[in-house]
Amino acid sequence: MSATTDVSLPARLSARDVTMRFGGLVALDNVSIDVPPRSVVGLVGPNGAGKSTLFGVLSGLLTPSAGTVTLDGTDITRTSARARARRGMARTFQHPELFTTLTVREHVVLADRVRHSGARLWTDAITGRGLRRPPADETARVDSLIDALGLGPIAHRRIGDLPLGSCRLVEVARALAVRPRLVLLDEPSSGLDVTETAELADVLQQVVATHDVSLLFVEHDVELVLRICDSVHVLDFGVKIAAGTPDQIREDPAVRAAYLGADVTPAQEAQS
């Protein structure tokens, strides 16, 4: 877990009494969640629990029927996903949305230019100049991020030639290149093997420790969530049934009944 988390500080992201209705279906019912600065927060629950709907509300893809969402104390409930990105929110997707013909480094460069030199990025695109020779400060930022995520050995390889685990890390790198204060991660371990999942966990913890960023992620791998999160929220049928530290979640009877009982065994608990 993050050693720098300070829950006494105002929440970086806060959702209060969020309700989402689709006709007569209540997908979320008065759900509240906080993501403190420099923290890793997990969101879990069985299929149909409302996790994706809550992510849509938090990221600006959905407008809630009721409730509020704030980012660093500013109400963003009805702002667009693009406006939230400008305020410091980034996200990844369950299925990596990368350009197969571009290299790892080119992805990070493009994201860096979105943040630091958008006008140049647009000019290069419409004039056909491509990625012109970068200034020294851009090179330093890109190199630092690539090194931090362990992507140096594959920096000049095309995305289409890389395994899924590496593509997941590239997505994280691209999200961080815009210097967000909060990153929403959608099923980051989906499709990864045990070794790749462990590498991803190490990277995510390192990111929080070195980049002054908070992470909120929806994840099906419960053990990953319980291993690296500072706090965990559990949804079931659109209702938040539990929230607390990983140890508290492990011991919660309602959570076991709804979701964790089939996934967390006594042997796994003994290894925690």
Rank of each mutant, 00 (worst) to 15 (best):
S2Y: 09
S2P: 12
A3D: 14
T4C: 05
T4M: 11
V7S: 10
P10M: 03
L13Q: 03
S14V: 07
R16N: 10
D17G: 14
D17C: 09
T19R: 15
R21G: 02
F22H: 12
G24Q: 10
V26C: 13
A27W: 03
A27L: 11
A27H: 05
V31I: 12
P37L: 09
R38W: 04
R38T: 11
V41F: 00
L43K: 05
G45H: 03
G50M: 09
K51G: 00
K51W: 00
T53R: 04
T53W: 00
S59V: 14
L62E: 10
L62S: 08
T63W: 09
G67M: 08
D72W: 01
R78L: 05
A83L: 06
R84Y: 08
R86S: 08
M89N: 09
R91Y: 12
T92A: 09
Q94H: 14
L98I: 07
T100V: 13
T103Q: 04
R105V: 11
A111I: 06
D112M: 07
R113N: 00
V114T: 12
V114K: 02
A125C: 12
I126W: 15
G128V: 04
R129Q: 09
P134A: 13
P135Y: 01
E138T: 15
A140Y: 05
S144I: 03
I146V: 15
I146Y: 09
I146N: 01
G150F: 04
G152R: 15
G152L: 11
P153Q: 07
H156D: 15
R158F: 07
D161K: 04
L162P: 01
L169G: 00
E171T: 00
E171C: 11
A173G: 10
A177I: 10
V178H: 04
R179H: 11
R181A: 13
L184R: 08
D193V: 05
D193W: 03
T195Y: 14
E196V: 01
A201N: 06
V203D: 09
L204A: 03
Q206I: 04
V207P: 06
V208Q: 06
V208F: 04
A209W: 04
H211Q: 15
S214M: 11
V218E: 03
E219K: 07
D221Q: 14
L224F: 15
I228W: 01
I228C: 01
C229R: 08
C229F: 02
S231I: 06
V232M: 07
V232K: 02
V234Y: 00
L235N: 01
L235P: 01
D236S: 15
D236M: 09
K240H: 08
G244M: 13
T245K: 11
E251F: 02
D252S: 13
L260M: 12
G261S: 06
E269Q: 14
E269L: 15
